[in-house]
Design a protein around this nucleic acid. Structure first.
Lengths: 207, 207
DNA sequence: CTTAATTTGTGAATGAATTCACAAAGCCTC
DNA sequence: GAGGCTTTGTGAATTCATTCACAAATTAAG
């Protein structure tokens, strides 16, 4: 299959959200133009994005909301339950453990890991906090698909190395640092510092 | 000035982080090639990114670490102290209030806002939690530059409308929703659901 | 001072993503 | 079932971003 751009996948994700909204309001069809308006893009962009995966619409009518939603879930791999572990049980780790968006989309949080003895053994929103030393053993047993990293920057590379060695192929990184991983591992980084600096730049360089 | 791409600004932000690391280790010069290696890009990309703003290097030698760091801070607008308010004092709001990265980069958190009476009046890591009804009055008095939104999706558009009407021109949005704002307002959205779906897609569509 | 070795800065070339534009297909009304 | 109205799907055109490639500048060594 032709390589799909990251930006395309992000938009598909956004379209799915709008479709679910439409679905809950009982609407049965939607045009690329309406979808575009909601997503801040153009109708040609919507159609092009979808065309990479097939043709799901009816000319003159638009797309069936439930059908397109289903197709998008399939494309994005949301049919399956993905198993997630959180590494780092600090404030951000705790906020993520409580985040309902995970479960809603079929991401099941198995456990959180930390090295601090006053966190290990307790629970975070019903999720057990285990000692980081158990990581490899647990991964071997439970085969989580995704590791979420909420550890300090200075430990992030060391931790991701362990995660990769244990066989996990997808990482969501919250440390404001660039991680080096093998090609077959996918890392997405959420970098708040970078976003803030983007705002600072925008505020500074306005016309 | 020529419009600068978002991706360029993000890279500048990354370069600054590496430079600060180099600076703390006492190194005085760096080449575009070293900077590129650390940032997972190419030396031509580094030089092109910088060339939009001037020429800061010395041929045959490279860049002075402190000088380039200073220039980048200036370009990114990090000389100034930006005033920030957080709207939504839930788990994510609390985690952000505690996040040291804000202060380190000169982002000063003035206050948090919430509508729930059991949060209002208390404090979050030393930051006062005020009633959302005071928002407009406070903005009028304190002139915050940036609003960070950590409210539920269903309220996000209503809240951002109030924020925009009160005169704030920069918003960091944590709600997994697309916000509509006037052209002179900059919004950056951090969407964890979208990142997770990107990972799900990558895991599903591997070769 | 001359030659070899670096490394920047930048036009030109290439590659990637978005937008245009229009034929083809379906619905609706009379 | 003909004509008008919509809306998709997609090559072609365009715009935007990255990479190439090399002259110009600087250092270092003899």
């Amino acid at each position: 299959m032709k390589r799909i751009a990251d930006s395309t996948v992000r938009r598909l994700s956004a379209y799915l959200r709008f479709l679910e909204d439409f679905e809950s309001r009982g609407l049965s069809t939607i045009s690329s133009d309406e979808l575009a308006r909601r997503g801040g893009t153009t109708s040609a962009q919507v159609r092009k994005d979808l065309s990479f995966f097939g043709s799901f619409g009816k000319r003159g009518l638009g797309y069936s909301v439930p059908e397109l939603a289903g197709r998008l879930r399939e494309i994005l791999g949301l049919g399956k339950q993905w198993k997630v572990i959180i590494i780092g049980a600090g404030k951000i780790g705790a906020a993520l453990a409580a985040y309902r968006g995970f479960r809603q989309r079929g991401f099941q949080i198995l456990a959180a890991y930390d090295s601090s003895s006053d966190k290990v053994g307790r629970s975070l929103e019903g999720i057990p906090v285990r000692d980081i030393s158990q990581l490899e053993k647990d991964v071997h047993r439970d085969h989580p698909d995704i590791a979420v990293l909420t550890v300090p920057s200075e430990n992030a590379q060391t931790v991701v190395d362990r995660v990769v060695r244990s066989g996990i192929k997808a990482v969501l990184n919250f440390a404001p640092t660039q991680l080096q991983v093998p090609m077959d591992v996918t890392v997405k980084t959420v970098n708040m510092a970078m976003e803030l600096e983007g705002l600072s730049f925008a505020l500074t360089n306005r016309d």
